[in-house]
Amino acid sequence: MEEKMYFLMTNDVEHHSIQLNREDPNIPDQIYNVGLPRLLELLSKYDVLSTFYFTGMFAEQSPESIELVKEYGHEIGCHGYDHSPFRAFDSLKYKEQIIELQRAKDAIEAIGGRISSFRAPALRINNDTVRALIETGFKTDSSIASQRFDGPMSFGSKNKLGWLYAPRNPYNMSYDSPTKKGNSGVIEIPISAALIPYIGTTMRISPTINRVLQKFIFYEAAKTGKPVVFLFHPNECLDIHGKVVTTRRTSNNLEYIFADVIRHRLKLKNLGNSSLKLLEEVLKSAKEYGFEFVNSEEYRKVLQKEHIQR
């Protein structure tokens, strides 16, 4: 009997405007009216069950977005309270992270019911995050991208160097380090990568590179049983209207050049309907390859069942 292969289609829902390179209070309405309907229709076409990680701020401003996602049967997860680079989890102390997590969780659960899955904004966490997740009742995390290398192209890149030696398969996180195995009880479900991340941004910047990367990721999954975890954003489904602005988000000149200017220009490629066409190619390929689409909570239960059977 062949072992099942699992594909986790994950979506981060936040205020970030790709067009303006910053948080934008107009984004929730645009996502609710345009981005989510487009994305949800595509996911339904391929019978994809996925996880939508919402920020607490987004939930407060657009509760109808959470209700819409739940109507389609998808899991609701937590993406912190806001997506500001100045409140990233890798810059917060233990007690500050607990406050941030609880605030976000309360805002989301008031609309969507109980949640247990977390992904940090910009994938930025530190050694205190595991204990903070336990304290606030989270059971899974998906903030580590094993063997992904961003260099200076993202904020928090120094802490992200730990990704290079993180386990590739899902693992119980260590109390002392999120990139090491341990017995914390929080299951890390790493985002797929092989130096280059398997995410919507890569897909849009270079569809050719993404297809090559996908072949390796799919082959590895078939050989090792490792799940495929693809990261996407509903704001990638939005078209550009009006002026493009590269907002400066850091006082560090090197970070500004790479993480703001260069990265922003790359992220502007293939947005809107072009992004949806490329995403459809990804989902169609996964379905034809034989993957079963599951959300983060369902995959956690799969792992628990396999552990019991062993």
Rank of each mutant, 00 (worst) to 15 (best):
G156Q: 07
N11D: 07
T201M: 13
M153C: 06
P190W: 01
L254Y: 11
P190C: 04
K267W: 13
T140M: 03
A122H: 13
T201F: 03
K267D: 14
E188Y: 08
T129E: 01
Y219A: 15
G242N: 11
Y53I: 08
G112N: 03
D176A: 06
E96R: 04
T250G: 05
I187V: 15
D176S: 07
A107H: 02
G162I: 00
G80Q: 11
R248W: 04
E60W: 00
I76N: 09
P167M: 10
P25G: 08
K287V: 00
I144N: 11
P227V: 00
S275K: 01
I115W: 12
Q61M: 13
T201K: 04
E2W: 04
N159E: 12
L101V: 10
F258N: 01
Q30E: 02
D82A: 07
L49T: 15
Y171C: 14
R300M: 09
S50T: 13
I111T: 12
S143I: 06
R38T: 11
F293Q: 08
N295I: 09
D24G: 10
Q30V: 00
W163Q: 15
A59N: 07
H74N: 09
S50F: 02
T10Q: 08
K284V: 04
S50A: 14
I76K: 06
S192D: 01
H83V: 02
L123F: 13
E288N: 13
Q97L: 10
Y198R: 12
G80V: 07
D150G: 09
L254R: 12
I134E: 05
F258V: 01
Q30D: 01
A110M: 06
C237Q: 08
P28K: 08
A88D: 05
D176G: 05
L303M: 15
M57K: 15
S142M: 10
T179G: 12
F258A: 02
E288K: 10
K4D: 07
R204M: 09
P152W: 01
E297H: 14
T179C: 15
A122K: 11
F232Y: 15
E288M: 04
A193S: 15
V229C: 10
P234H: 02
N253M: 13
L283S: 02
K277P: 00
K215L: 06
T208K: 14
E71I: 05
S65K: 03
F58Q: 05
E96A: 11
V130K: 14
I189G: 01
H241S: 11
A222E: 15
Y72M: 03
A166G: 00
R38P: 13
I66W: 01
R249N: 15
L92A: 02
I144L: 10
F86T: 03
T247H: 06
P63F: 03
T136I: 05
E23I: 03
I66R: 04
L42S: 12
L20R: 14
Y198S: 08
V48I: 12
A194H: 05
P197Q: 02
